[in-house]
Design a protein around this nucleic acid. Structure first.
Length: 509
RNA sequence: GGCGCUAUCGUCUAGGGGUUAGGACGUGAGAUUCUCAAUCUUAAAACACGGGUUCGAUUCCCGUUAGCGCUACCA
């Protein structure tokens, strides 16, 4: 095995959205390759013709690119031609290769045709369960004599191709878990190629199965380290047997633990966002997601560092430090990381990423004309969100003011019921009445000082009622930044009520 | 049922035969800002259980339990 120049692959099947679990597998593969100066390749596992869809394949590549995970070899798509010397990189385009290899195995007596029907196999399985024995294929067709085989073939009986499992333990080495061993009698002779029944089996007729093609491809593509989910551990002995049948070297394996939801069950849509594209739509930054995924099952050598750029990760990553135990996906920690990267993001980048969320509020506005103001808005509100799609809700008090709702709100009502609140608001109303035109932030600040002096009310008692009269809520962003934002926005022709209009509506000047 | 994988604070993890079992998220408290948030300080919080091995196990071994995976002519 070539350890100086490792080759690893990410081999998703295009049957759905790229899930965080798979994304983490892709990341670890990529990190391992980049760290070691090796090759990272992308292979599309579309042998499940029924479920594979082209749009998923395109989405997958887009998601990978968004995360910053580029591949050295892989299939052609809209953005680039096929890369690499080991193609094709789509399994559906490699059928002839598999057929050739199946022929070889059959000729060498390492595989055999199996004429058992699904019904027969099902009956065997039921019997095994009833007898508390392992559910393995009996090997009935393994010992068929040539005459019977020829007769069956001549009669046009459909058959699957099975591999003969040798009678010795199947071992492999796992970089995350150490040596793993399976007794031969616990591994059935696996199906390599599905039978062709003449239509009854649907589109998959005669198509080789996953365990077989994955092994052929990994060997032919000279993969040195197979890094994948731990749901493949039980498949690995079958694959090891296939390597052995062909006389190919067995690669190193690294099986990554499952990502679970808060209820300790496999993470699924039920737990909230799980697909990469959803996180993107919600306004998570790719660097936050990458950082979080890296931490989910791996830790820095110092045991302390939490934030890593992709660059830093490639320096620090090693498979030896990957933990074997399953990890629960923690949205709180992801949010913390996202806030961390949001703070560091360039304002212009944030503007580009956020603009789309405000299509309702900014309807009809000229993006160029409101750009500076929009940056101002983001500077004030981005620090208050976990992810960008929360921006419209968090900044809603800027864009509109509902005096009725403000008064009706229970918490507000409690604040407004205080004598001090009434005094403060009437003082405020007096000043608005006496003042002409726009309420300048400087003037407002002066008013607040005057009211404080005149009434003796200060702190919460002073600011909460005023805040309600202007924003409809007793808490929010700092007044000295919020007021100019509202006033500038009102002057810009976006549909934003001015400070004066708000106070007038609320106090009824 | 069979086989396999896993087991340190609520969560992600560091550590490792003798440690005050470390960090981070989250949570509580305090400071601060008009408030909330943010920030800073601080507190509470863990070696699943039972047997070995050993002078000594959270650490090594075995078992139990629990969780998860595979047990397909899915990937």
């Amino acid at each position: 095995m070539n350890t100086t120049n490792p080759r690893v692959r990410f081999a998703p099947s295009p049957t759905g959205m790229l899930h965080v679990g798979n994304a983490r597998t892709a990341l670890y593969n990529w990190l391992f390759a980049r760290r070691a100066g090796g090759v990272f390749l992308l292979r599309i596992e579309d042998t499940d013709l029924e479920r594979s869809e082209e749009r998923y394949e395109a989405q997958l590549m887009e998601d990978l690119r968004w995360l910053g995970l580029d591949w050295d070899e892989g299939p052609a798509d809209a953005d680039s031609g096929e890369k690499g010397e080991f193609g094709p990189y789509r399994q559906s385009e490699r059928l002839a290769i598999y057929a050739e290899h199946t022929e070889r195995l059959l000729n060498e007596g390492k595989a055999y045709p199996c004429f058992c029907t699904p019904e027969e196999l099902e009956a065997e399985r039921k019997q095994a369960v009833a007898g508390h024995g392992p559910q393995v294929y009996s090997g009935r067709c393994r010992t068929l004599d040539q005459t019977t085989i020829d007769e069956n073939l001549a009669a046009g009986k459909p058959f699957a191709v099975r591999l003969k499992i040798e009678d010795h333990p199947l071992r492999f080495h796992d970089l995350v878990r150490g040596p793993v061993e399976f007794a031969a009698e616990t591994v059935s002779d696996p199906i390599l190629v599905r039978s062709a029944t003449g239509g009854a089996g649907g589109m998959s007729e005669g198509i080789p199965v996953y365990n077989y093609v994955v092994t052929v491809d990994d060997a032919l593509m000279e993969i040195t380290h197979v890094i994948r989910g731990d749901d493949h551990i039980s498949n690995t002995p079958k694959q090891v047997a296939i390597y052995e049948a062909f006389g190919w070297p067995v690669p190193e394996f690294a099986h990554l633990s499952t990502i679970l939801g808060a209820d300790r069950e496999r993470l699924s849509k039920r737990h909230g966002a799980t697909s990469i594209s959803t996180f993107r739509e919600m306004g998570y930054l790719p660097e936050a997601l990458v950082n979080y995924l890296a931490l989910l099952g791996w830790g820095a050598e110092d045991g302390k560092t939490e934030t890593f750029t992709l660059e830093e990760l490639t320096q620090a990553f090693s498979l030896e430090r990957v933990t074997p135990s399953p990890a629960i996906f923690d949205f709180d920690k992801l949010n913390w990381l996202n806030r961390h990267y949001l703070k560091q993001a360039e304002p212009e980048r944030l503007a580009t990423l956020s603009w789309g969320y405000f299509s309702a509020q900014m309807a009809g506005a000229d993006p160029a004309a409101v750009h500076t103001w929009f940056l101002q808005l983001l500077a004030l509100f981005v620090p208050a969100v976990d992810h960008l799609d929360q921006l419209p809700a968090t900044s809603a008090p800027v864009f509109g003011f509902d005096a009725e709702a403000a008064r009706a709100n229970e918490e507000n009502a409690a604040v407004l019921a205080a004598d001090s609140a009434r005094t403060v608001l009437s003082e405020l109303a007096n000043r608005v009445r006496a003042h002409q035109g726009r309420v300048a932030p400087e003037a407002f600040k002066e008013w607040m000082n005057e009211i404080k002096a005149a009434t003796g009310v200060k702190g919460k008692e002073l600011f909460h009622p005023v805040r309600i009269a202007i924003t409809g809520a007793h808490s929010g962003r700092e007044f000295d930044k919020l007021l100019p934002l509202i006033e500038d926005g009102a002057a810009l022709g976006i549909n934003i009520p001015s400070v004066r209009q708000r106070i007038e509506r609320f106090v009824g000047v």
